[in-house]
Write a protein that binds this DNA or RNA. Structure first.
Lengths: 257, 257
DNA sequence: CGAGGGGTTGACGCCGATCAAAGCTGGTGG
DNA sequence: CCACCAGCTTTGATCGGCGTCAACCCCTCG
């Protein structure tokens, strides 16, 4: 599912490729962290320019289409991924087989960090929701950088803490209360992730929304349809919706204290 | 709610006190980390003996009764807590006011770690579920140790990663599916925490169980009553129950693939 | 003794799961 | 170009689980 051609210059995800550039998003291949224009928000902010001179394994920049798998629990080639653009869902399979999406991560987030403290395998499956580009940092490289630059530890720490906070929010806002409130909260969360003008969002496929709020697709569909009818959600372009944030916040609170 | 008498030798939580010793659990006061008999599982495992010689602020050992508040979001005296014994619930209040218990932490876990990367206030409320003893490490001490002993960072990292994994489990096992399955999963989780013989557990108050599985107290009560009737849960002593793990696992799977 | 808190049980109604069928879309091949 | 199909979304009908409200029990405490 993840194969390398030549000497690590190209990554092809799930059979779909595209040319991209690290700095202008059209170059695909070896990442150039020194010139990364979004490095301030990434894992490697705080590292000196010279840090990447002698990395043994290449850091690759890859692009994934919606549905493309960044990794799953069976993956054997360990690496950490830093998301540069797009949305990634983390799917967790419980011991009893139940599946749910436990996190949604966007630009600036790092995934696969569990490998850093000794885990042999990923804890969940990471799948691109929208078009995603990300840097793939081989575990050995990450370890080397980490031992050489202790400041990186603080970055990792912050990543984990942020994800933990997100998890808490996920439990209270997306896994509690009636379906209408959960969906409202999900839409508000998508607004947070929005990179569009006016905070417009693109809706996720129904199945994903259902796996996020822990209901069925039918229920999600009904709720969303109702929101559209009431104009709290209306289409502004193909696949792009504007959200009435104030009204959604009201829904989210309507049976709380 | 958390007051210090004398020169930091004694901590009294929520008006309830008890004498304890750091090594034999009956001494209450300044923690002696060098002789801590459970340090191998704690935050400070990996630190040299001398590390605690020159801590400016005292690390205190405190004991809290069920219901006692270790900290809440309004707390102004920043510290990290390492749980030595007992169970602590972390309660999260969503932006919309909804409350849920987002984590249950036992011996070896550290809480309040969010303060380490710059948060000015705790993100949730920590309340003792059973009788708890814990070490209270002032933030300044923690920071000092952290900068002096980089190995501590790995410990913190592991703590966060473990809590993140627990969160994922929480979402899939305790916030998804019918109430019966959730309660079964909760009981199985309590078995994990059990320090009793035969993995016997003490049930949580109904309100807590409800706040964990995201249902009402009535529903929890009905489910638990049914389990007792079916002998999957039966009293072996006052407040102590034995669990039929095999049967509960069966319940937890019964409508999964 | 009564008051109050937590747990248990019952009756009822609604939300949402389930099953089923019908639009809608893009892709494929004739 | 259209017919056809697969996959996704939508909508409807039905039914069960669980939330709600209420009564009652038990225990502790004042």
């Amino acid at each position: 599912m993840l194969c390398r051609t030549g000497s690590g210059k190209l990554l092809i995800m799930s059979g779909e490729t595209k040319k991209t550039c690290c700095t202008d998003r059209r170059w695909l291949g070896r990442a150039d962290c020194r010139r990364c224009h979004i490095r301030h928000m990434m894992l490697f902010s705080g590292l000196p320019e010279s840090a990447f001179d002698d990395t043994l394994q290449p850091i690759n920049h890859l692009l994934t289409r919606p549905g493309g798998v960044l990794f799953d629990v069976t993956e054997t080639d360990p690496a950490i991924f830093a998301i540069r653009r797009g949305l990634v869902k983390l799917q967790h399979t419980a011991t009893d087989g139940a599946q749910r999406i436990v996190r949604l991560l966007g630009p600036g987030s790092a995934i696969g960090l569990e490998l850093l403290d000794g885990a042999r395998r990923y804890r969940n499956t990471a799948i691109a929701v929208s078009e995603v580009d990300a840097c793939r940092i081989p575990l050995s490289t990450a370890r080397a950088l980490q031992s050489k630059y202790p400041v990186l530890c603080a970055q990792v720490l912050r990543q984990l803490q942020d994800q933990l906070d997100l998890s808490d929010e996920w439990i209270t806002a997306l896994s509690t209360g009636p379906a209408r409130e959960r969906v409202a909260n999900l839409l508000l969360m998508l607004v947070q992730f929005s990179t569009e003008a006016n905070n417009d969002i693109e809706l996720l496929p129904g199945e994903d929304m259902a796996a996020i709020v822990g209901t069925t697709v039918e229920t999600v569909s009904r709720v969303v349809a109702s929101l559209k009818r009431r104009q709290l959600l209306h289409k502004v372009a193909e696949g792009l919706y504007r959200v009435d944030e104030k009204a959604l916040h009201a829904i989210s609170r309507e049976d709380a204290g």
